[in-house]
């Protein structure tokens, strides 16, 4: 440990506010990105499932396409 005590660790020789602000913003931003990205994917899946349930009840008719991507042939 580079510090003698927990309080010295928090104060950081007077630079505490600067250092801790940076680390807090960094952790929050990354956490936010992760949670937001996960939620986006789950929302897409859930929306699709709801859509399919509606289709099964015969309210929406939407024929599934085989694929929307075309194969590419790099050469």
């Amino acid at each position: 440990m580079a510090f003698d005590s927990i309080s010295a660790f928090i104060v950081m020789g007077g630079h505490g506010p600067y250092v801790w602000t940076c680390y807090a913003v960094f952790v929050l931003a990354l956490l936010g990105l992760g949670v937001w990205s996960r939620r986006q994917r789950n929302t897409v899946l859930r929306t699709q499932k709801r859509q399919m349930d509606l289709e099964q009840n015969g309210r929406v008719t939407d024929k599934p396409a085989p694929a929307s991507f075309t194969r590419i042939h790099p050469s």
Partner: peptide
């Protein structure tokens, strides 16, 4: 991918 391919099997 899920968004683009949502109509596929």
């Amino acid at each position: 991918i899920l968004k683009r391919e949502r109509r596929t099997r």
